[in-house]
Amino acid sequence: MDFLSILSIFVLAVAVGYYVVWSVTPALHTPLMAVTNAISSVIVVGALIAAAEGVEAGGVSMWLGLAGVVLASINIFGGFAVTRRMLAMYKKKDKKPAASK
């Protein structure tokens, strides 16, 4: 991919992000931050490449990569798990019997 195609993806994704985020209900802004945190750990892709390719080349870049994998994994597992835990707490009012049904 050349630079311009990548730039196009980026610009379009910013536009999508703008509209998607405005549609998030304010009550869920904390889970929004937690989940954006988790997905921004997709940086792990770079760390994985550094670690895997570094194994052959050896040396510092492998360790940098592995350290990056550890940090990003804390974030991935921690971020998604804490988001799940938070979202599980959001409950609607219990409908009293005969209210619906």
Partner: peptide, 27 residues
Amino acid sequence: TLALHPTGLPFIIGAIAIGGGIGWVIA
């Protein structure tokens, strides 16, 4: 990513397990 760069898997899976475990417990 792992399929594209299949070297050093034991190290990498170890790193994911360490980080993932810490993250899970914190969460």
